[in-house]
Design a protein around this nucleic acid. Structure first.
Lengths: 333, 333
DNA sequence: ATGAAAGCGCTAACAG
DNA sequence: CTGTTAGCGCTTTCAT
């Protein structure tokens, strides 16, 4: 036969299965003698309760589903770390699925996980349609959405005030003594882009600086490289000594362009990124950037989800805003 | 009430629960009329079977546990991608836990996952003691170990022939026309180090080249940088034109040293790494390195595990050796 | 303090 | 082809 069951323990201990259950869960008083006999039997058989059976009767699976767009994306992996580690503290385990940005896969995962009786869902994706959102609500499983943009209205989530963070970064540059700072951003009209842009403007306005803005299409290091020529021209014409780019990859591409064209970073020009990706402190010069505490975001998200599951005091009545930090490194001075 | 159950479907369809079960699983013939009634009822109620109950009676959870040392480590995340995506094809879902290199945590995870009735276990770690291994065997749950070293004896696993891969890389350098190649390796006496070293030696010997070896303690980019002075000295004294380092990080540190000391890579010196980490093709010069197909390793591992679970033909009777590829980029010529 | 019995939602003989 | 029944391993009344 296979694993020992509660029956085997009961038989060996010479008590009923109820008594065994009681000592396992400390749910009702049991006489010291009986308890000891049960404990001995459990040890002897190396008995481990079948959580499946327990979940079935208790209607609590202690499982949360996590659907991630792609675990290979660094920040998503960090998010999962936080979710996993804190979830474990509350005795919740993670059922992991990937959607690879495919809506059908995401929908399937939601269905699948709900048949597995997950008590809650955390969805980490940058692509979520309204239909999926509706479907999600229909499942009646508590859920939390995590992404880079946090653009969902009417949904409590854990988010970052990108506007404020960009403001802090720009302020840091002005405080360093730079008079003119160029903002190179993505031209798409989305929440993230607009928020960062607003942060830049706020900083410039508050300090009575002139606004210099360059908007481009991409977000990759190549895009950063390719905008180099135009950006440098603008810098020279306007006495600009610091440039900020939307993310670390773009910043690195841009610095590469500078290096190829005899412009020294940070001596001739300070350059900063955003996101504190793993390359930021390996690349030379080490990149000044904004560090986003993804681990903490994951941790807070799972904690909030569990509270919601347990119908405890709602810690996400409002959005939970996480503070980031400006990490000053070599690329700015 | 909560989710609809098979009973609700049966009642609504006017049949017995067995019939409902039969149409759901296509396990036995059902009359077209009955089937249609059941299907309608299922659709109407949006009924989804409770997999927990199903697992309990069928004794198949369709769950595999994955214990990872740290999901934040890039190659482990890639491994998980493969495991997850292929596991899903076979209808297996992943229960994820992290051990953070802590043996007690690992042991707890093994116990915990086995109470969740996982049908198999994949453990991704670089630290595994013999005691844990014994414990693992005692659980009687099929398992597969994945790590960077694959040093476990008497265990079928998915592995890389590091000796051969290093050989291929060195051969590539000789084929490029380099006469003398310096090998900078880690001095610790372990399977991985020895294998790579053997690969270097084999290539040098086969082609009648002289062996130049430098062994150091660390593995980080700083270590690569710090060995720079000594390594360059050796290169100059021996007319060495190519250097190979144990991993990409070290290689990058070493190239940084070269850059700081007026040595141009690849013009003055070719430098290669190992592993194809994500920085390898962002760093400038882009790094020539060996690409390890972690995704495939994960995919093969889960496939093998599932076969083992189903007692099908064993595809891991012998170790499964995965081929890597040399990725030639800018840092060598 | 303890055991018998019911039942969580489902599958799988068994009988018809 | 279909319904009845007996569990899977566990928790939880309900008696005693």
């Amino acid at each position: 036969m296979g694993q020992p069951t509660i029956k085997d323990v009961a038989k060996l201990a010479g008590v009923s299965i109820s008594t065994v259950s009681r000592v396992m869960n400390n749910s009702k008083p049991v006489s010291p003698e009986a308890r000891q006999k049960v404990l001995d039997a459990i040890a002897k058989l190396d008995f481990k309760p079948n959580e499946l059976a327990r979940s079935l009767v208790m209607r609590r699976s202690n499982l949360v589903g996590v659907i991630v767009e792609d675990i290979g994306i660094e920040y998503m992996a960090q998010l999962i770390r936080g979710i996993e580690e804190i979830g474990r503290v509350y005795n919740y385990d993670i059922l992991l699925q990937s959607s690879y940005g495919n809506e059908e896969a995401l929908n399937n995962s939601i269905d699948f996980l709900s048949t597995k009786q997950v008590e809650g869902l955390i969805i980490i994706t940058e692509n979520l349609t309204n239909e999926t959102l509706i479907k999600l609500r229909e499942t009646r499983v508590p859920f939390i959405l995590l992404d880079k943009y946090h653009a969902y209205k009417n949904l409590n989530t854990v988010k970052i005030d990108y506007s404020k963070e960009q403001y802090k970064l720009i302020k840091y540059l002005y405080d360093l003594g730079h008079e003119n700072v160029l903002y190179i951003g993505n031209s798409e009209d989305n929440v993230l882009n607009n928020a960062k842009f607003a942060g830049y403007n706020q900083a410039a306005d508050e300090l009575n600086k002139e606004n210099f803005v360059l908007k481009i299409d991409g977000l990759s290091s190549n895009d950063g490289y390719n905008i180099g020529k135009e950006a440098i021209k603008i810098c020279k014409e306007n006495n600009i000594t610091a440039v900020t780019l939307m993310n670390d990859e773009m910043a690195i591409g841009f610095i590469d362009y500078c290096a190829d064209n005899g412009i020294k970073v940070p001596d001739d020009l300070s350059v900063v990124g955003f996101g504190d990706s793993s390359i930021a402190n390996i690349y030379r010069p080490n990149l000044t950037t904004v560090s986003i505490p993804y681990y903490d975001i994951g941790a807070i998200a799972i904690r909030a989800l569990i509270k919601r599951i347990k119908h405890e005091e709602e810690i996400l009545l409002d959005d939970w805003v996480i503070e980031c930090t400006v990490v000053a490194r070599e690329s700015s001075k």
